[in-house]
Design a binder for these strands. Structure first.
Lengths: 212, 212
DNA sequence: CGGGGCATCAATCGTTCGATTGACTTTCGC
DNA sequence: GCGAAAGTCAATCGAACGATTGATGCCCCG
């Protein structure tokens, strides 16, 4: 097969798209056939462009995010492979991307040759994982994390603002005993035994954001 | 003046450097004269290359970080202007960069024309601030945050793992009373009144990272 | 030299936390 | 219909937290 791999670049950063295009333009076995600034634009591009591999950023400032777009792309008939590219990730990001059907996950600071190699692997349907990503996936598969209920996430968010159980109960119009019960469940699911560790773990896993 | 602005690109992401170079190569009033993957390499490049504007990433995976490098560059005799470029920032990042002497601060998702404009402003010695950055600087100037001592930061880091005061005192070989004293100071400086809020605030400000 | 900052320490006390045990109601899927 | 999950609630009790007051010692700088 001597036809170049047709690539679609999806990233909200013009600089990054430009850099990727320049890099792949130098490779005779690869051809950038389209670019998109968010997931929606990526899906639009796929409607009238044949693509072998999509290079997808997970975090976009606005528009359809990378995980949702990945899910939709891989649900297409005869979908292209999706190689996720990102700067930094939380455990939740990695898992979400893999569950959405991405066949590869690389960090943006990977050297150009590694990136090109990952693109080729993805085109062949092989999994391409950047450093550390494989290890974290294995860890996740070994001990799958239990999902928190919506109520539990809501309580976690408020907990991070430093509210006492009593203040929480007032804000949510429930009893303090109920707050405590939810906390017991939250601690169990996160594998911690106090609120402070719960907050740190939740932020690290991307369950909540650090907004005081 | 018809000579092009001489630019030095400093970023640990090859993709980003490549994209920036491609963008500036198109502008007749700008010339990329060097690239560097970290702050140290940037200083080396400046030793034998004349540069008008340095485009500096703040976060590098390894090597000398952007803030330190900015400080050293602006301490040079007849230094080039430093325009900081980053993806995401914490309050501490912004303040550190400005205090280190940067004359501009832009987010990487800025459109190419805005970036070019910021480079021209920096070259003229004018301040170039991206969206939201100015507002946050004003907020900081209104109520400057107190810096935590190294010991306080150390204690904050361990606090985030959920350690009780007693466990902390054991790990640090100090009394529990000392731990409590440090915490009182930490709470005062962060403007909070309990450990949980302290952790959230510290993570948000970039003082510590969420590593459970 | 004196003051400020940092690190260290003690004791007291009221409040809050977390574990525990037990229970009830509603909804959904098998 | 039954069981599981989610949400709700109560009471008890020991441990831990945070505020407070007060103190000492060291180092650095004006």
């Amino acid at each position: 097969m001597n036809e170049p791999l047709r690539l679609l670049l999806v990233d909200d950063h013009p600089v990054v798209r430009r850099g990727l295009r320049a890099m792949f333009d130098e490779r005779s076995d690869m051809l950038v056939v389209a670019e998109a600034g968010d997931g929606r634009a990526a899906l639009d591009a796929l409607a009238d462009t044949s693509v072998d591999v999509v290079l997808m950023d997970l975090r976009m400032g606005s528009g359809t995010d990378g995980v949702t777009a990945t899910g939709r792309i891989t649900a297409l008939p005869d979908p292209p492979a999706v190689l996720v590219l990102t700067v930094y990730d939380t455990d939740a990001d990695i898992l979400a991307a893999v569950e959405a059907g991405a066949t590869g996950y690389m960090l943006k600071d990977s050297p150009p040759e590694q990136l090109a190699q990952a693109v080729r692997s993805a085109a062949r349907g092989e999994t391409a994982l950047g450093p550390n990503v494989a290890a974290r996936l294995f860890e996740r598969l070994r001990g799958p994390e239990e999902a928190l209920s919506p109520r539990e996430v809501e309580i976690l968010r408020m907990l991070g603002q430093g509210l006492s159980n009593r203040a929480l109960s007032r804000e949510l119009f429930i009893s303090e005993a109920t707050v405590k019960t939810h906390l017991v469940h939250i601690f169990d699911k996160l594998g911690v035994d106090n609120r402070t560790a719960a907050i740190t773990t939740a932020i690290q896993r991307g369950i909540i954001r650090p907004t005081p």
